[in-house]
């Protein structure tokens, strides 16, 4: 365990080092992130001024959903997407061989080796929005709603990771799968608005087929004390348990699927 933590620290410092190697690119990315962040905040202010309600969700409750979405999006950009891209590359050029021959868990390496700083602003913005939304709700910010919301967010990250890793494992057979990145971004995008705001068919789809509802709507519900902030009431703890089950299931499946995919790995020809 200690070795893994130490390795992780070295992984990430190397990733940041590689990013900072190109100074102009680094500055452009920094500027780009700042502009995106400003744009996000501006959009929120426009929405907030109009007092708009969606799907019977009060504005702070909807804001919480957008906040969770933004946070998860930042997490995806920071950790999940760069690693997914790298897996595809390594399968194609055969350098995956080097990882497989290291005395360390290959899934650990392939999931956490890369870290991009550019998801950071969204991660912070999202966290800020969630806290602000919580404070604007009738119950205000208490440990009783922050803790379950945080748990929901962590489970959301696990769900996002598990789904993405299953798709990445498919690279072993199909080799060229850069589109996974776009697909995962689009999937998460569907959770940008409260799932109850969608029509019933979509609601079922986004809850039971693609577990988008568990990624964003559930944590936001937790923030409102298990309800959607004065609107329709939800099942509270039941949803969180659902998230836990989905996350645990996906993590397990991603692990088993990966091990199975490896048995089929033949590695790119010399």
């Amino acid at each position: 365990m200690k070795r893994y933590l130490h390795t992780l620290r070295i992984f990430w410092s190397a990733s940041v080092g590689a990013e900072m190697e190109y100074r102009v690119n680094f500055l452009i990315s920094l500027f780009n992130s700042a502009v995106t962040l400003a744009g996000g905040v501006f959009l929120l202010l426009v929405f907030y001024g109009s007092g708009y309600e969606m799907g019977g969700w009060s504005w702070p409750a909807a804001l919480a959903v957008i906040g969770v979405y933004t946070l998860l999006d930042g997490f995806q950009q920071m950790l999940l997407a760069p690693n997914r891209t790298r897996i595809t590359q390594m399968v194609r050029d055969g350098t995956l061989d080097f990882v497989l021959l290291k005395p360390i868990d290959a899934q650990f390496w392939l999931s956490l080796r890369q870290l991009s700083l550019w998801g950071g602003p969204n991660l912070i913005l999202g966290a800020g929005m969630v806290l602000y939304a919580g404070a604007s709700m009738p119950a205000g910010l208490t440990l009783g709603n922050i803790a379950p919301a945080a748990a929901g967010i962590v489970l959301g990250m696990a769900i996002l990771y598990g789904l993405g890793y299953i798709l990445s494992s498919l690279t072993i057979w199909f080799v060229k799968m850069e589109n996974i990145t776009f697909m995962m971004a689009a999937l998460l995008e569907a959770g940008r608005y409260p799932i109850p705001a969608y029509s019933p068919l979509y609601r079922v789809f986004f809850t039971f087929v693609l577990p988008v509802a568990f990624m964003t709507t559930v944590p936001a519900r937790m923030l409102g004390g298990g309800t959607s902030g004065g609107g329709t009431s939800g099942g509270g703890g039941g949803w969180l348990l659902g998230s836990l089950a989905v996350a645990a299931g996906l993590l397990l499946v991603s692990r088993l699927f990966w091990l199975w995919a490896l048995r089929h790995y033949t590695s790119a020809s010399s």
């Binding site: 070795r3 130490h6 070295i10 190397a14 290291k102 005395p103």
Partner: peptide, 8 residues
């Protein structure tokens, strides 16, 4: 450094 960490 990465290899040193991985090989402990």
């Amino acid at each position: 450094r990465i290899n040193a960490a991985v090989y402990d």
